[in-house]
Design a protein around this nucleic acid. Structure first.
Length: 111
DNA sequence: GTGATGACGCAGT
DNA sequence: GACTGCGCCATCA
């Protein structure tokens, strides 16, 4: 069942600590052509965090839309959890948006 | 099989 | 600069 999920997970897991990535970059890197699929896959990955935690942990909180907005914060159980996680990694979040987003942006190709 | 939905992105207004 | 509409692909009712 090597779907988009695993691909998205693989990319997302490569995001370094204190860095962020966007749906568009992931979608483009996977040649999906639809950024919606990335968010959809990450929605499933959210449950994956609970199951594997340290093993196949997917830092979905490091994935945001192209504007650096925490669009998926409501899927983390609490609307502030995503921001809390980002801030705990040293990422400054202002009004549900990542500060210095461009500076913190990380790309799979750059890896 | 069809229509609606989704953690998005882009072009046009 | 903000809002709207369309496209994108996969899943669900």
């Amino acid at each position: 069942m090597a779907n988009y999920f695993e691909k998205v997970y693989e990319i997302t897991r490569q995001i370094p600590y204190g860095r962020v990535c966007t749906y568009g970059i992931i979608a483009d890197h996977l040649n999906l052509g639809a950024a919606r699929m990335v968010g959809w896959a990450l929605n499933n990955s959210n449950g994956l965090q609970r199951y594997h935690l340290d093993h196949d942990f997917v830092p979905a909180h490091r994935v945001v839309n192209r504007l650096g907005e925490l669009s998926g914060r409501h899927k983390f159980g609490t609307p502030t959890l995503m921001q809390e996680l980002l801030e705990s990694e040293g990422i400054e979040v202002e009004n549900d948006k990542i500060k210095d987003f461009e500076a913190l942006l990380w790309r799979p190709e750059f890896f």
